[in-house]
């Protein structure tokens, strides 16, 4: 059984949803982001999303754009991100790792090689922002062969018939982009989520994670209950960015993010 499936099944038994924190790889440097990654499970991360820095993150808001730039400045490459996951796996064999990023670095790495290397490194799933269902054949067969879940994205603009089309061969879990917008800019209301989720569940039996615009413990709790998981990204990066001194990590960097993560996790568990 895949780590993703095992984790969601275990949480179902516990009777709660998952918290999925996000960090941008190499932000602000390799060591700090690896230290943060390694500490996240103990602070309450059920799954972890790692952003792969890209020069042109056209679906991201200012917070993640800045994080990507810091990551690139620190030398981030897709190969380097896999190295980071490999190192994480030395201390954690259970927490699912999902890479989130844009297609071009994967295309440049080589789709088949990437899928193979990613699974070898310990990656469980990938979210490719600019690869809709219509273009997914670029990775599908390779991912399937390697045992890598391609996480499908659905949005408020995804109509009912399209939901069935997009989720037909989905694996792992489904990522619901809860606002029509870029990351870290607005939030869906609880009522909007309550209206959207049943429609998605009609089209899939997979767990549904809700992301974009979830920043407070209350929002995380609501999303993890209406859906099956809450993704928190920009809010954590904002905290981290606030601890940096001239773009460099300080002694406050990792503890500040972990403190916030513990609060979010308590809300999801509470």
């Amino acid at each position: 059984m895949s780590r993703i499936k095992a984790r969601f099944e275990a949480l179902k038994t516990e009777g709660r949803g998952a918290l999925i924190p996000y960090l941008q790889a190499f932000d602000p440097d390799y060591e700090t982001s690896l230290e943060l990654l390694k500490a996240m499970p103990a602070a309450g991360a059920d799954l972890i999303e790692i952003g792969v820095p890209f020069s042109d993150p056209s679906a991201d808001g200012p917070t993640i754009q800045a994080a990507a730039l810091r990551g690139l400045k620190a030398g981030a490459t897709l190969g380097g991100v896999l190295e980071m996951v490999r190192s994480f796996r030395e201390t954690d064999a259970e927490t699912p790792i999902i890479l989130m990023g844009y297609l071009n670095p994967i295309d440049s790495y080589g789709p088949a090689e990437f899928c193979f290397d990613a699974v070898q490194a310990g990656v469980d799933g990938i979210i490719v922002v600019d690869m809709p269902t219509e273009e997914a054949d670029l990775l599908d067969a390779h991912a399937r062969a390697a045992g890598l879940d391609i996480i499908s994205l659905v949005a408020p603009t995804t109509a009912r018939t399209r939901l069935f089309h997009v989720l037909k061969d989905a694996s792992g879990f489904v990522y619901y982009v809860s606002i029509t917008g870029i990351t870290g800019t607005g939030s869906a209301s609880q009522a909007q989520l309550e209206e959207a989720l049943p429609k998605i569940r009609e089209a899939t039996d997979l767990p549904v994670a809700i992301g974009f615009g979830i920043s407070t413990p209350e929002q995380a709790r609501a999303a993890s209950r209406i859906g099956d998981a809450a993704v928190v990204a920009s809010a954590l990066i904002k905290t981290m960015a606030g601890t940096l001194s001239e773009g460099q990590a300080t002694e406050k960097t990792v503890p500040s993010v972990l403190k916030q993560l513990i609060e979010l996790s308590a809300a999801v568990r509470g």
Binding site: L103, M131, P132, T133, E135, A155, A159, R162
Partner: peptide
């Protein structure tokens, strides 16, 4: 019909934009 000229072109956009 996929918007391709040979291997080039296509529709590499986020799902939010795909219906549009």
């Amino acid at each position: 019909e996929r918007g391709r000229f040979g291997v080039f072109g296509g529709r590499f956009v986020a799902e939010t934009l795909m219906p549009l």
